[in-house]
Design a protein around this nucleic acid. Sequence first.
DNA 1: CGCCTATTGTTGCCAGGGCAACAGTATTAT
DNA 2: ATAATACTGTTGCCCTGGCAACAATAGGCG
Lengths: 222, 222
Amino acid sequence: MMYDKLKSMQSVALFQDINDDDYSNLINCLSPQIKHFSKNEILLLTGDSVQHIGIILDGTACAYLDHMSGSHTLISNLMPMSIFGEVLVSTKSQRSPVTIYATSDVVVAFIEYQKIYSMCAIACSAHRVFLQNMIKTISDKYFNMFDRIAILREKTLRSKIMAYLFLLSNNGASVSVKIPFSKTMLADYILANRSALSKELRKMENEGLIAVNGRNVELLFL
Amino acid sequence: MMYDKLKSMQSVALFQDINDDDYSNLINCLSPQIKHFSKNEILLLTGDSVQHIGIILDGTACAYLDHMSGSHTLISNLMPMSIFGEVLVSTKSQRSPVTIYATSDVVVAFIEYQKIYSMCAIACSAHRVFLQNMIKTISDKYFNMFDRIAILREKTLRSKIMAYLFLLSNNGASVSVKIPFSKTMLADYILANRSALSKELRKMENEGLIAVNGRNVELLFL
DNA sequence: CGCCTATTGTTGCCAGGGCAACAGTATTAT
DNA sequence: ATAATACTGTTGCCCTGGCAACAATAGGCG
C-alpha cells in the first residue's frame, strides 16, 4: 500500500532518468513522509516556514496568494505528480508566500530540504540527476509564471481570453481544449471579472470565434 | 584584463560558497567565453536557440517579451552580475521567449549548457555547489515573477503603484526608494499607461502619500 | 555650445470592463 | 428527496484609466 504510493512517485518529473535501483536507494536516502489531507484541509499556510518539498500523489489542491483585502489570487492548480515548496528550498526565510488547500482528498509525500542537499554516498550519481531534475522542475514553474504574464499583459479582456486559449491549445496545436477549472477560477486566473468573462465568452461564441460547451472549448479561429 | 573579468565573476550568485581554488578549477572546466556588445546591440533574439548561460559582467541590458502587435513588455532588467538563459537549460526547445538587448555597452560571459551538466572530475564538489546555486538563482527568478503577479493583480492603478513601491521598500523596511528605471519603463512594468501613471503619481503626491523626486520616491504613507 | 533624442508632464475624450444584483442550473451533502 | 452550496448566465450603471496629441524639459553626443 505505502509501497505502491512510493512506486507511483517514480514517474514524477523529479525522478526522471533514474533507474529502478537508483530510485530505491534515493528513496531510502530522501525518506519521504506520506501524509493524507481531507478536502478543504490546508496543506500550507501563507507565512509558514517550509522545510520540505511536497509531491501530490493523489487528489488535487490549489495554491492561492492572499490579499489584505481578503480576496485571493489563484497561483497554481496542483494535480497528481505536481510539486510544491521546491522554489523555497534556497530562500533565506523559507516562508511560503501562498496558502495551499486541498480541493479533494489528497495524498502528499514530503521530502526534507536537508535530505536533498546533503550528500548521499550510496546513490551519488542519482542524486546529481535529482538536482538536475529539480532545476528543470523549477524552470517549468518559472515558465508557467511567464505564460501568465503573457496573458495578463493583453489590454482587452477578449485578447486575454484568446491568449489563454491559444496557450491551452499548445500554440494552436489542437483545435479543442478543456479548461482545467471552473469559469469562476478562470476569471480569477486571468484577473478579470467573472461576469465580464461570461459576457465576453458569449459574444465570442456569437461571432463564431469559439464554441463553448461547459469546460470544453472549440477554437474556430485557428 | 581578461583575467580580471573572470575574477569579478566569482562574486556572481552562481559561484557563491565556492573557494578560490575550486573556483579556478570550475572556471577551467566551464571555460566561459567573454563577448562584448555595443549599446542597442541584441544579445538574444526571440526564438533563438540558446545553448549557454549568459552572465553580465559589465553594463546593462533589458529582456523584453515581444508581441504580434509590435508592442513589447519588459520582463527583466539585467545589471552587472545578472544571469540570463539559465531557465532554458532544461527545456526541450531551448528557444528564447524573449529578446535581450544592450542598454549600454555590455560585457558578457557565456557558459555552455553541456559544460554545466557534464561531470567535471577535478572539482566535483564545487560542481555540486554550482548546481545548488543554480537552483537558487532560478528560484529567485521565479519569485521575481511572483512579485510581479502580486502587483498586476491589483485592480486600480494606485494600488498597483502602492504594491510596487512597497515591494521596492522591502515590505516597508525603508522609507525612501529609488525606481531602477525610467517612468516610461515603470509604466511598462506594471502594465499601465504612461500618462495615466504620471497623472496618478502627481495625485498621490498632492495627497501627501509620497514625494517624488525624479526616480527617488519618499514613502510618506509608511 | 547647440542639436537630437529620450523622458516626463498635462489635457480631454470615451469605451472597456468592473461591480452589484438577481436568476437559473449543477453539484454535493444530509 | 430536500436542502445547501457552488457555479453560471444576464443586465444596466458608471468610473477607471487607456489613448492621442502636444509641450516642455533633460540628457547624450558631436
